[in-house]
Amino acid sequence: MNESGADERPEVVAAVIVKDGRVLLVRRRVGEGGLVWQFPGGEVEAGESGEEAAERETREEAGLSVRATGLLGRRIHPGTGRTVVYAACDVVDGIAHVGDLDEIAEVAWCGRAGLAEFIRFPFHEAVRAYLDANLR
């Protein structure tokens, strides 16, 4: 950690993917900082934009081809201490499934009503607004 409290490891991207009024979540085999269910994502690699990382990580973890449509924001995650970049993404092709058996245990499309059962940390304000506008 540095003086500002941010983790000095590379930024992490979270792909916020909404389709048919539901958002895609993945359940990691090993939780990080209390996170178990979360958006597909991972570390942004050198020379890669947050949007590119969101597209790559979603393909690797959930077998979906997505197109990032914009960044929703960034924050230091309250549970992990990592800097997280949130990218809104649209599905281009594929059916969500466990793409990385070593890292992901399952995937789920979740509507507004069930979201609290999956996610225990408060959403970044911009992510919450995006989900409020797009979930059923």
Rank of each mutant, 00 (worst) to 15 (best):
E57A: 13
D102F: 02
P122D: 14
N2Y: 05
V66L: 11
G111D: 14
S65K: 13
V85G: 04
G111Q: 02
A105G: 05
A54F: 07
R136L: 07
I76M: 09
A108R: 13
A129Q: 14
G70D: 04
V30G: 00
E125G: 00
G50M: 05
V36S: 11
F118S: 00
R28N: 12
R128M: 03
L64G: 06
R28W: 12
Q38I: 12
A62C: 07
L72T: 08
D102P: 02
R120Q: 12
Y86E: 02
E57P: 03
G94H: 08
W109Y: 04
V18L: 08
V98C: 01
V26C: 08
P40N: 09
L131G: 02
A14N: 09
V107R: 02
R9H: 10
R75C: 09
H77A: 09
A6S: 14
N134G: 03
V26P: 03
G70R: 04
R59W: 04
T69Q: 04
V30R: 15
T83A: 04
G31F: 10
S65E: 15
V91Q: 03
R75V: 09
E57N: 06
E51I: 13
E106W: 00
V16D: 04
E57W: 12
E61N: 01
E60W: 00
H124R: 06
P122K: 10
Y130D: 04
E117H: 07
V18Y: 04
S65W: 06
A133Y: 05
V26Y: 03
G21M: 10
L115W: 07
G41N: 04
V36A: 13
R128H: 10
G47C: 11
V36W: 04
L72V: 13
Q38F: 12
F121M: 09
L135T: 02
V91A: 07
A54Q: 02
E8S: 13
A133S: 14
G73Q: 11
A14M: 05
R67L: 12
S4L: 14
A105Q: 11
A46T: 04
L35M: 14
Y130H: 15
D132L: 10
A133Q: 10
V18P: 03
A62Y: 00
E51M: 14
A68M: 09
A88E: 06
R27G: 00
G41F: 01
I76D: 02
V23D: 02
N134F: 00
S49R: 07
G111M: 03
A88L: 05
M1W: 15
C110R: 14
T80L: 12
E3K: 11
R28Q: 12
L71D: 02
V23Y: 02
V30Y: 08
M1V: 14
G81E: 08
V23E: 03
G94A: 05
G47Q: 10
E103H: 06
D132Y: 02
W109V: 07
G111I: 10
R28F: 10
G5M: 09
V127Q: 06
C110K: 13
E60P: 02
V85C: 07
R56W: 11
R22Q: 15
L101R: 10
G99I: 02
W37S: 07
G94W: 07
G79V: 09
V44S: 00
G70P: 06
V107K: 01
A14S: 15
V127C: 06
F118V: 03
E57L: 12
